[in-house]
Design a protein around this nucleic acid. Structure first.
Lengths: 363, 363
DNA sequence: TTGTAAGCGTTATCAA
DNA sequence: TTGATAACGCTTACAA
């Protein structure tokens, strides 16, 4: 019903605007605008006439006009790492998106890491005043053509990392502290030879987690020659690579500390295929707390990051900044993780562990 | 250098607009606009003065104003499935994004499947003329409040599926045909008892792939009691579940056909942990051709979808429609897949295969 | 080739 | 409470 009722003809006619509605309702455009934005400031009689006209004409306000006039678009850019594949960021995005959507904002998700052209365009959105704020998840403000999001004069909030060289508020966890917990879990079970599978070198989180690993190893008096290191990029793939290297050496570490769950799962996948049983042949601890890990066999022990809360808190900071509340420039909110136990850890095998052979080096 | 050169003061002053540039360059705003949009229609002398002013003032045109005036935003909405986690869609998105970016368009990625609130907002973008077109990857135009993207009077292109009940152009593969190929691969190796691990029931691709599976099984004269079925949602998780069920029955099918690579990998992950070796104990074929599968151990035999090309072709259709070329309303581009062999298939074990026991039923 | 000026559709200010 | 009107910043006839 009402299909044919829009006077202008149904096909690709000009979209209805606020004047059409005003005409139809017999009021001024100002009244229509008010009836929609602040209904309580319009008499009930007029209000319902406007509402009827809006419904009949299927009127939707033009966003570009609103943005131009209001000087705000109610759009937020989320600059995510290129590899959104991993489910840690997928979860974080969901939580951010929900929070912003609930407050009338729309999220644009993109990655300035993907390509220069893409980065240029996303950064331009900020300078062109098409977005009201940006949430950065990459730990680094991409700079291109001498511009970056942090200088676009819009609120910036970073999650997962402090933005290098910027005074923008951030939501993080204490990476070093929790990396220490990873090691302690293994050491408490009796592991003395450890492998650390790290993320991208130089990366904010990586620097801190590796530091935590080393500090905890030193505190436990593990010999330097009993520590080995592999570098990945947080992805499943790179975990598979680490697993491949691991399976090829002997004697091998009995405990593995990973800087991401994705890498841990890739590692376990390869190790299983290579005939290594977990936790009989090695113990492994991840970092992130993604759902896959909990459902894996065996379930993955890990440091669970509160990604739902990280998103909510980050969104809240942004909304506050957008609301005009001037956040202290060094706002840094540190959220708690939790140690999540799983079937992937056990005491090292008593027989094989201290078997004294000439130790071959890891590649 | 030039840090302090913008006359208005550096902090959070009013953004520079085209009039500021015109003033600085000593020309009219029209000339500035032309110098930027159609440089060849402006004398070199003036053009360089404008360019200098633009650089000095760090001018970026206001997108809302441009959108309002031009009646086009150069933004494309991509309606993706909620589970972008899986790398098949991640790859498709990348390819779409690249193609659109190269042509001056910006992508907004979102999912109308995620929540009603989110769907409402995304659909509103179309009605509010904030996006110029929409690419739908979900096979279904979400309807909420009586509205959906397909009625917003903007170009729509769907990829991976034909949009139900819409006459919009689409880019697909012949799901049924390639599902037949999956079965044939296993049958040719001698497998006679097959398990089909499907996607979401009723889903466009699922309907066709299951139909292909059944048709091929019939053509190979496989007994109905030798076919079993499991339903998933294309995700790794649901593959794990299928693997769990598979490992629990005996005697079990020797060949597994999956409607997605993610499910196949989940399946293999669980099966490996349960002590089932692939391809010795079972053969498995996936669908999608994601990178993980190729790097898995053993590598996954699969039907590789040309996701790069699907994105490019889809983007091309959209760009053509935006350019005013009226695509025939029933445009349907069917791209070829390829059968990608892998280590996950082999002849069934001769000893165990026809061993006659009372067959227990799969749950 | 360049400038003038009229919109694009809203919202906010100011009178009535 | 409501209406007329002036911006918001840009592009594009049309005039010069």
């Amino acid at each position: 019903m009402g299909r044919l009722s829009d006077g202008a003809g149904s096909e690709s006619s000009k979209p209805v605007n606020i004047r059409d509605v005003a005409l139809r309702a017999g009021v001024s455009t100002a009244t229509v605008s008010r009836a929609l934005a602040t209904p309580e400031r319009v008499r009930a009689a007029l209000r319902s006439r406007v509402e009827a006209a809006v419904r009949e004409l299927e009127y939707t306000p033009n966003l570009a006009a609103r943005t131009l006039r209001a000087g705000a678009s109610r759009m937020i850019l989320i600059d995510a790492p290129h590899r959104i594949g991993g489910s840690f960021f997928a979860g974080l995005l969901t939580s951010l998106d929900e929070a912003f959507t609930a407050h009338g904002y729309t999220c644009i998700v993109g990655s300035t890491e993907q390509s220069d052209e893409k980065a240029r365009r996303l950064i331009e959105l900020a300078y062109a005043r098409q977005i009201d704020g940006a949430v950065v998840l990459t730990g680094m403000a991409t700079r291109i053509d001498g511009r970056s999001l942090v200088e676009a004069n819009i609120p910036i909030v970073s999650i997962c990392a402090e933005l290098k060289g910027a005074r923008s508020p951030c939501v993080v966890v204490d990476d070093e502290f929790w990396a220490v917990r990873q090691v302690e879990l293994l050491v408490a079970l009796g592991h003395r030879r450890l492998l650390y599978v790290g993320g991208v070198e130089g990366n904010y989180n990586e620097v801190r987690r590796r530091r935590g690993f080393k500090r905890a190893a030193r505190a436990a008096r593990l010999a330097a020659r009993d520590l080995s290191f592999a570098s990945g990029d947080y992805s499943l793939d790179s975990g598979v690579e680490a697993g491949r290297a691991f399976a090829a050496v002997f004697p091998r570490p009995s405990g593995v500390v990973c800087a991401s769950d994705d890498m841990a799962l890739g590692f376990m996948g390869f190790a299983a295929a290579a005939g290594l049983k977990c936790p009989e042949d090695y113990s492994i601890v991840g970092f992130d707390g993604i759902d896959y890990g909990r459902n894996w066999t065996p379930s993955l022990a890990t440091i669970a990051q509160p990604r739902g809360e990280m998103g909510r808190v980050g969104a809240d900071l942004m909304l506050r900044a957008l609301g005009g509340a001037p956040l202290p420039p060094d706002t840094k909110i540190v959220l708690d993780c939790s140690l999540q136990l799983g079937g992937s850890t056990a005491p090292p095998r008593v027989t094989g562990a201290p078997r004294r052979r000439a130790p071959r080096r890891l590649t």
